[in-house]
Write a protein that binds this DNA or RNA. Structure first.
Length: 925
RNA sequence: GGGCGAGUAGCUCAGUUGGUUAGAGCGCCUGCCUUACACGCAGGAUGUCGGGGGUUCGAGUCCCUCCUCGCCCACCA
């Protein structure tokens, strides 16, 4: 007899490091991940297309657990659909990430003691291009390590020539439709990044600040009286052009039309009336600073007030447009926060500071550098959003698009209903230059798809707009631009648009997801996808979001190196409820990823058992096995397989909506990936490994007809388990599947990755009676095991068990040997036939298991132990009952405590009965 | 200020339309290196299902209310 090792070439321990890379290479070489336009049914092909567009990571990003989670989810879905027979495409790509990338290069320059201005625009952009070429795209290579099955031939980049063309086309088209305009208004300005930001890029943060009450003297008042305004930003008072009160506010009615003296700047400004003022807040008097506050800007427009800018782009005080010399010389060039303090001190000195109140309010911060943003009057390009939002809103409302988990749909709808115009120009150097040219001679403005060299009207010299577009103005086109838009007849676009699922984090629902939906309707007149799957965030054990800067991150590549990509993937998928955050311990990777690693090992060992026992010669096809050849266990496991396939399909749900719209009953039912993972795990571990595999021991090597049946069924069952698990654990399942013996006549594909997804079948082989019958046998085995454990019967000690049954006598008789094998006992059907001490257990069908204990356990010793236990229980029970009957206890204790104590009493009484019976049986009267 | 979500075993979470004894993984306890697997096997313990009230024959599940966390949105200076 040869050893296990010689029967097959599987090492005792699974070593992912050795196998994963090689398997990945083979997949790529064989073109497993490549999608073919011609096979798409939309192009006359024979397969339904299934498409996922990868949320492009920043081109300079390094893989972190967030990417790991995001791309694992996508890969599970994509691999599932590929096996299910769809023409499956997963488009990978990166984002040039305007501000983020520019900031990195600026930091590098700073380290060299330089600024971008030392280089100049052209050289700076060239340097950034070089930096991106050198470091960029590394993250996509890293994604291969976790098994991402993207079509790398189609890797996109938001700043590539093709996608840049799409960006220009989108801009020009929207401009032609009157949806892009130049706006003069107050926008969010980051004084550190020196650029304007969209509303979404200026993120709220609650802070406790101060509300300063400042007295403005009333001009011409005999008693030197004043009005008091309340402000959180005293430095902006230099830009005040009025103070406003509510028109109906009796306190101030008589002041309307008069003037007050603006402190520090010493300018007379009018008192105006405007509905915008809330008389109940602060003093009911508001300083109006149109150039530095969006509300004040509106007031300024209504009252046709001047709009002086009193701050420089870098956040220092400075006299800008229309400011004259409002900022006094000693404040010029002083940072806004320092200026605030100086102005407050100065007001204190002049007795114009009435008081300072603590005040909680929210302040907006730059989403890239966290600097407090400054509202600032400037000229920017805007997209008119309301017309674009309309179809996007409708799509979710009617179910053309679903968002999972469901609760995000309300958030989405709420945002779109209150949508505001999108500031798309950025005062950066890294990005798509705005395709607008201005003629120096006739000041004509030219918006063009192609570069303009001379004015189309007068032939004069032109210069292009200095600004670049918001990064999101290129990524919102990703689903269409990566497939060939603006060429609407491009083969990929025809074959693969609309796409199917979009998988991302809720943080970019507004930045990206909703805008993609708008772009889809605006440029293709069709939604970009039908499903938005929003997953949670990866956090540490303290629920703090993982991040490099906090040092609480996990490098997915560390996990891959230590435990394998499959362990990472399984852990992530199984541990993450729909939309729920994922907690991982960065200080204990072994514990964090134990679920995945342990399960991979389990699979490996089942594989080893199978190869050692089934061997490699072809097996019979399960389809040709006759029912009368199958054992009860065979039929049971085939039934369990069927049930598992059904459960898995239910958890994954329908891949696409029927007739273009999600029906209510299926809309929120699918993509429950953790339930899918759990169903598959339960089948493999609790059914196949714990029970079925054990039943084949002893019959599989017998060389009989029955052993051929066992070989066939075990192989079939494991083959299908591997198929189910492949989307989650692609590497180990492929490795094992490659070595599986196959049915003689079966056509075996080259890869599990493209093997057909299991299909549940209604078959007499797996009827429910087999399930029920085998479950009773399992109960019997468990009962015997429990008794063995209860009485401390050594595993090596053979014992005899009797089964008494009326309803299932034949079943037990037929499977006495099997029960014995699984419980390490000799099982006899019928009465124990003596009054000797015995352990009893009743099964759910009324059958009784009896195990005589004489000669197996030391009766005297066991009796002593049991009596001791019974005595202790009696004492405890007595005390408890006494306490419960005691009035004081009942009245003092809270009702639930009393309730639980009563429950406990009941339980103890029950246990006392059981123990007493046990003592009586074992020790006699 | 508006909206949403969560609170179930020590930890992370499942618990579909209310229905038998509330589950899983990790951790814990006991016994086992039983020739696929100690990254394992067998057995076991642990739950005022956030508090209170209500509807119901029956509620972790529905309604009201309170408490505690978290998220999103927001132009009250």
């Amino acid at each position: 007899m040869s050893t296990t090792q010689e029967l097959h070439d599987l090492p005792a321990q699974y070593d992912p490091g050795q196998t994963e890379r090689a398997i990945y290479e083979r997949w790529v070489e064989a073109g497993v991940f490549a999608a073919d336009e011609k096979r798409s049914s939309r192009n006359g092909g024979d397969r339904e297309p299934f498409v996922v567009i990868m949320p492009p990571p920043n081109v300079t990003a390094v893989l972190h657990m967030g990417h790991g989670l995001n791309n694992t989810v996508q890969d599970v879905i994509v691999r599932w659909r590929r096996m299910a027979g769809d023409e499956t495409l997963w488009v990978p790509g990166t984002d040039h990430a305007g501000i983020a990338t520019q900031n990195i290069v600026e930091k590098q320059l700073a380290a060299e003691g330089k600024t971008k201005f030392d280089l100049g625009r052209e050289a700076f952009v060239a340097r950034t291009v070089a930096f991106v070429e050198e470091t960029g795209g590394e993250i996509l290579r890293q994604l291969r390590a976790i098994g991402a099955s993207a079509d790398w031939n189609r890797t996109a980049y938001t700043f590539s020539p093709e996608l840049s063309r799409a960006v220009r086309e989108a801009f020009v088209q929207l401009h032609e439709r009157g949806l892009i305009y130049r706006g003069h208004r107050v926008i969010h300005w980051c004084p550190r990044c020196l650029t304007s930001l969209s509303d979404e890029e200026a993120q709220h943060g609650e802070e406790v600040g101060s509300l300063y009450h400042i007295a403005y003297r009333i001009v011409g008042a005999k008693d030197h009286s004043s009005v008091v305004v309340a402000t959180t930003r005293p430095e902006t008072l230099l830009g005040d052009v009025a103070v406003a009160v509510h028109p109906d506010d009796e306190r101030y009615k008589k002041l309307i039309g008069r003037s007050v003296m603006l402190p520090i700047a010493n300018i007379e400004i009018p008192v105006i009336a405007d509905e915008y003022v809330d008389p109940a807040f602060g003093t009911g008097v508001v300083k109006i600073t149109p150039a530095h506050d969006p509300n004040d800007f509106e007031v300024g427009m209504r009252h046709q007030l001047p709009m002086p800018v009193i701050m420089s782009p870098d956040g220092t005080m400075g006299n800008g447009a229309d400011a004259g010399s409002r900022v006094p010389p000693d404040l010029l060039g002083i940072d806004r926060f320092e200026a605030r303090e100086r102005i407050v001190r100065s007001l204190e000195n002049s007795k114009q500071l009435e008081k300072i109140e603590a005040h909680q309010h929210s302040i907006r911060h730059c989403y890239r550098c966290d600097t407090v943003v400054e509202p600032r009057l400037s000229d920017q390009w805007f997209v008119k959003m309301e017309p674009l939002a309309k179809p996007a809103l409708e799509a979710v409302r009617v179910g053309t698009i679903r968002i999972l988990p469901e609760r995000w749909e309300a958030v989405y709808v709420n945002w779109l209903e209150n949508i505001r115009d999108w500031n798309i120009s950025r005062q950066l150097w890294w990005g798509h230059r705005i395709p607008v040219w201005y003629c120096d001679k006739c000041s004509k403005q030219i918006v063009s798809r192609t570069d303009v060299v001379a004015c189309e009207s007068c032939g004069g010299p032109v210069r292009q707009d200095e600004d670049v577009l918001d990064t999101w103005f290129s990524s919102w086109l990703f689903p269409i631009s990566t497939l060939g838009w603006p060429d609407k007849s491009a083969a990929p676009l025809v074959a693969f648009y609309p796409t199917d699922d979009l998988v991302t984090a809720p943080e970019i629902l507004f930045f990206w997801v909703s805008r993609m939906i708008m772009a889809g309707y605006a440029f293709m007149d069709a939604p970009p996808f039908h499903t938005v799957y929003l997953h949670g965030t990866v956090r540490d054990m303290n629920h703090v979001k993982m991040s490099k800067s906090l040092g609480n991150g996990i490098d997915p590549l560390d996990v891959v190196n230590s435990y394998g990509a499959d362990a990472l993937r399984y852990t992530v998928v199984a541990g993450m409820g729909m939309g729920a955050d994922l907690m991982l311990d960065h200080r204990d990777l072994e514990r964090s990823f134990a679920p995945g690693r342990n399960f991979a090992t389990k699979l490996w060992n089942i594989g080893r058992f199978l190869l050692a026992n089934v061997g490699t010669s072809p097996v019979r096809s399960v389809d040709e096995l006759r029912v009368d050849e199958l054992t009860l266990a065979d039929r049971w496991i085939l039934g369990r397989l069927n049930a598992t396939i059904v459960e898995s399909d239910a958890a994954l749900g329908p891949p696409r909506p029927t007739k273009g719209k999600w029906r209510r009953e299926e809309r929120y039912a699918g993509l429950r990936l953790s339930e899918f993972a759990e169903a598959a795990r339960r089948f493999v571990w609790n059914d196949v490994a714990d029970w079925y595999l054990e039943t084949t021991k002893g019959r599989i090597g017998a060389g009989s007809a029955d052993s051929e049946v066992a070989r066939a069924v075990l192989t079939h069952v494991f083959d299908h388990a591997l198929r189910l698990l492949h989307p989650i654990m692609p590497f180990i399942t492929e490795t094992l599947w490659q070595r599986l013996p196959f049915p003689v006549a079966a056509e075996r594909g080259e890869f599990l990755a493209t093997a057909p997804w299991p299909i549940a079948q209604s078959s007499s082989r797996s009827e429910t009676s087999a399930l029920a019958g085998f479950d009773i046998l399992r109960e019997a085995v468990s009962a015997i095991r429990q008794i063995r454990s209860d009485y401390g019967i050594a595993p090596g000690k053979s014992i005899e068990a009797f089964v008494q049954s009326r309803s299932n006598a034949a079943l037990f008789a037929d499977h006495a040997r099997l029960i014995g094998q699984l419980s390490r006992s000799t099982v006899t059907i019928g009465s124990a036939g003596s009054d000797a001490a015995a352990a009893h257990s009743v099964l759910s069908d009324g059958s009784e298991i009896i195990i005589p204990l004489g000669g197996v356990v030391d009766i005297a010793k066991e009796c002593g132990k049991l009596r001791g236990e019974l005595d202790q229980l009696e004492t405890q029970l007595e005390a408890l009952s006494k306490r419960l009957r005691n009035e004081g206890f009942v009245s003092r204790a809270p009702a639930p405590v009393v309730e639980s104590e009563r429950k406990k009493e009941e339980e103890w009484i029950k246990r006392r009965g059981q123990l007493a019976a046990k003592v009586k049986a074992l020790c006699g009267g």
